[in-house]
Structure formats: structure tokens, C-alpha cells
């Protein structure tokens, strides 16, 4: 029996090397000195990190990415929180269908969402590309916000809400002073997860590019197709640092068990 577990432990180690090894290789190459991407890297320098800030397109697209992720998150919260509350608090006819509709942006292939939005929002309805990009990202973020919040609400004891209301507080006041503070950590975790989804999105953003509008992932994609120097490795390291930070925060806020339970 011990033998068997040792085999399993070795297997697991190899799987983790497969999963994480490539990311370490990217890290190592980002500090190389030669103009061609190489592993093992030659020399040591920070020049590729400096190069990120010298390429203007990285800076402009980074700004667009952040603005879209933050503004989109805010809109997704405004329309997602009431929906999540209604869906988890009340039982009514058609609830199952509504649940499916609100989750569907995860189920529908990303490129299909991107293309149909380009076709109708940008071309038919003549909305500006920037606005359409923002709308696309709200659609993308909504299911994450709704799922995480609904999952926090499922742990909330609605007797507390009823107690507050029986003492004379209005439903709206009760929501903001009793319900919301109780699901605060879930709310923040949902925001962070949605942010990460938007920040890394390619499938929708790739259809929404125009003069002055493009996101960082799309700029990275274009760059990789044309140059093969370690600049992208350097950006990757910075993105991984942000990812690790956000993941650590999500873990602190609601535990990683959310991921194993909720799909």
C-alpha cells in the first residue's frame, strides 16, 4: 500500500512539473540579455522589463484593459447583485430558466459572443467600439459576479433579515445594513474573479479593436506574432504576479474550496 502511494506521489509530482514548469521557464527567460528568446537564458538584465514601458502600445492598451475591467465590474455589480439576491432568496416560476440565462455567457463560446456583438452592436446598431468592448466585458463578468454572490447568499441565514424587517427596517435598508455586510467577503471575491476574467479575456476583445481601442492581451497576441524577444516573457511575469496576488486574496476571502464545489 505504501508502495502504491509512492507511485501516485511521483505521478502527481510529474503532473505538477508539467503544469508549473513552463511558467518557471518564462520567468527565467524574461531576465535574459539576448534579443532572441532562449532557454536557458544568456546573461542577465532587466532590459525587457524596461522595454515594456518603452513600447507605447503596451501602456495605452493596459489603460484600456484596466478601465474596461473596473467600469465593467461596476456595471456588472449594479445589475448582478439584485439578480443574484432575487435568484437565491425567492422561489418563483421560471427560476431555473432565469438561472440558465444568467450563467449562459460562460456556456456560449467566447468567439461567438465576440463575433455576434461585433456584427450587431458595432455594425448594425452603430455603437462605438469602446462602448461595445465594455458591454462585452459586462456580459462576460455577470455570471461570475452572480455565481459567487449567490453562493455566499446560500450560506446566509435569512432569519436575520426577517428579524431586522420585523423590527421595522425597510427591505432596502435591511439589504444594505444586514445582508450586504454579511456577504462582503464573497462580494469582494466575486469582483476579483470577474476582474481576472475580464483582464485576461481574448475571445471577445479580439473582435473589438479599432483606432485607439485594444486591450493588453490583444496587443500581446499581435506582438508575439511579429517579434520573438523576451518582452512578452517580462509582461507575463508581471501578469503572473498580479494573478498570484488576486488568487491569494480570493483564498483569504472565501477559500479555494469555492472552485471545487461550484462547477
Amino acid at each position: 500500500m505504501k508502495e502504491k502511494h509512492r507511485g501516485l506521489a511521483l505521478f502527481t509530482t510529474l503532473v505538477f512539473i508539467f503544469l508549473l514548469g513552463p511558467l518557471f521557464i518564462i520567468m527565467a527567460t524574461s531576465f535574459g540579455d539576448s534579443t532572441v528568446l532562449k532557454f536557458p537564458p544568456e546573461g542577465f538584465s532587466f532590459r525587457w522589463y524596461k522595454n515594456i514601458f518603452d513600447v507605447e502600445m503596451f501602456m495605452t492598451t493596459f489603460k484600456v484593459t484596466i478601465v474596461v475591467a473596473l467600469a465593467g465590474n461596476l456595471i456588472a455589480l449594479l445589475i448582478g447583485v439584485p439578480a443574484a439576491y432575487a435568484l437565491s432568496r425567492f422561489n418563483f416560476k421560471g427560476k431555473g430558466l432565469l438561472n440558465t440565462i444568467f450563467i449562459s455567457p460562460i456556456l456560449i463560446p467566447g468567439v461567438v459572443l465576440g463575433f455576434t456583438m461585433l456584427k450587431y452592436l458595432v455594425v448594425t446598431f452603430n455603437l462605438p467600439i469602446y462602448t461595445s468592448l465594455l458591454i462585452g466585458h459586462v456580459v462576460l463578468m455577470l455570471p461570475f459576479i452572480i455565481r459567487v454572490i449567490a453562493s455566499s447568499l446560500s450560506n446566509f441565514d435569512y432569519a436575520v433579515e426577517e428579524a431586522a424587517m420585523s423590527l421595522g427596517a425597510s427591505r432596502l435598508k435591511t439589504f444594505f445594513t444586514v445582508v450586504l455586510p454579511n456577504i462582503r467577503s464573497g462580494l469582494i471575491a466575486g469582483v476579483l474573479l470577474a476582474f481576472l476574467e475580464s483582464f485576461n479575456n481574448v475571445d471577445i476583445s479580439v473582435f473589438m479593436t479599432g483606432p485607439g481601442v485594444s486591450t493588453l492581451p490583444i496587443q500581446m497576441l499581435t506582438y508575439v506574432e511579429n517579434y520573438f524577444d523576451p518582452t512578452i516573457a517580462a509582461i507575463s511575469v508581471l501578469l503572473m504576479a498580479v494573478t498570484a496576488l488576486l488568487m491569494f486574496s480570493i483564498e483569504r476571502l472565501m477559500g479555494l474550496s469555492y472552485f471545487t464545489k461550484n462547477n
Binding site: P22, L23, I26, N200, V202, P217, M220, S236, L239, M240
Partner: peptide, 10 residues
């Protein structure tokens, strides 16, 4: 949670 571009690039 890491960007698909970063992972494919690796």
C-alpha cells in the same frame, strides 16, 4: 487563472 496567452507563449 493565469492568462491563456502567457501559457501558450511558454
Amino acid at each position: 487563472l493565469t492568462s491563456a496567452i502567457v501559457r501558450s507563449f511558454s
